[in-house]
């Protein structure tokens, strides 16, 4: 672990501090946009811990978000909502560990397809379970105020950024990058490949689970096909591609880009928004596979897809 540069930590503390005062003077709309920005930052940062660093691309992070939302809505009324949030993170994490143990043996594009398949499998299973229970959607009544939820989400975004920063500068992070570059060589020089990959997978599921739990309160209802929507996974992948780095900067850029685009287009013309997203993916794969971080900062390390 390298010492944290003072300037970076000052900027980080100042930004989080300033952002936490936003509800005092920002309008409702501004707080709502800031909340979704914080949400995408938290999700993209979590994704980067696993996928940016190890090169094991996940197309199934919606599963963790959905699990978190499901835990929140199931425990609503029996457990304090602020206890359910960490519980949701824990459940997502355990789920990731259970699924990741066999799944992480699958490599490259087959891992990508597998994560997608697992997430869809989970989605349709939960739709089936809810249908047999006669529950087609569940409501959350009496959720905390939007401002409180915004602060919670801000906290999650900060925590996720911190985790990515710490991991990317640690011995663990260098191990993960070695796995990306050449897994067999990494194993040969003594990196505990299986354990590292599984730890990264579990770590990258924890925050998304909590994000799902907070968002369930924000939306105040739960509907499995929306909570497990593959679009969530897709957005995360596009953000990571656009941001394109294996440290904490890429996801911030990607989330900023995406939130701008979605504010501009999503409500007015969702299909145009999706077309632009698809076109961006094609463009970044072909012409800028290293993403914006590389263009802006130059020094970012090579990232994998």
């Amino acid at each position: 672990m390298q010492p944290v540069p003072i300037r970076t930590s000052l900027i980080f503390v100042a930004v989080i501090g300033a952002a936490s005062f936003l509800p005092q003077f920002g309008s409702e709309y501004v707080v709502a946009v800031a909340l979704s920005f914080a949400m995408w930052v938290a999700l993209a940062q979590s994704w980067t811990v696993l996928c940016g660093m190890t090169g094991y691309g996940s197309f199934g992070h919606a599963a963790f978000y959905g699990m978190g939302a499901y835990v929140q809505v199931l425990t609503w009324g029996t457990l304090s909502p602020w206890l359910s949030v960490p519980l949701a993170g824990l459940v997502s994490c355990l789920f990731a560990l259970a699924a990741g143990y066999p799944a992480l043996k699958v490599r490259g594009p087959y891992f990508v397809m597998l994560t997608f398949g697992l997430a869809e499998f989970l989605k349709f299973s939960i739709i089936g379970i809810e249908a047999t229970l006669g529950q087609f959607s569940r409501l959350i009544i009496g959720a905390p105020s939007p401002n409180a939820l915004y602060l919670a989400m801000l906290g999650l975004a900060a925590a996720a950024t911190l985790i990515t920063y710490v991991v990317s500068n640690s011995r663990f992070g260098y191990g993960l990058r070695a796995i990306r570059e050449e897994e067999q060589a990494a194993e040969t020089i003594g990196i505990p490949v299986a354990r590292y990959k599984l730890t990264a997978f579990g770590l990258s599921a924890f925050i998304p689970g909590m994000v799902g739990a907070v968002m369930a309160m924000r939306l105040s209802y739960f509907e499995p096909s929306q909570a497990f929507d593959a679009l969530i996974s897709f957005n995360i992948v596009v953000m990571a591609m656009i941001g394109g780095s294996d440290d904490a900067r890429g996801p911030l850029l990607g989330a900023l880009f995406l939130i701008g685009l979605s504010e501009l287009l999503w409500a007015r013309a969702p299909q145009v928004y999706m077309i632009v997203l698809g076109a961006l993916l094609v463009f970044f794969v072909l012409f800028a596979p290293q993403g914006l971080a590389k263009q802006l900062f130059g020094g970012a390390r090579r990232r994998a897809t």
Binding site: G108, P109, M274, L286, T305
Partner: peptide, 28 residues
């Protein structure tokens, strides 16, 4: 050469982007 090193993964992303475009152009 740089892109074709991870050809399968990159092609999956590229085709996925095309898929999203085709679906939504058809929907429009």
């Amino acid at each position: 050469t740089q892109l074709s090193q991870r050809l399968e993964g990159n092609s999956l992303l590229l085709f996925f982007g095309i898929s999203i475009i085709l679906q939504n152009v058809a929907a429009l």
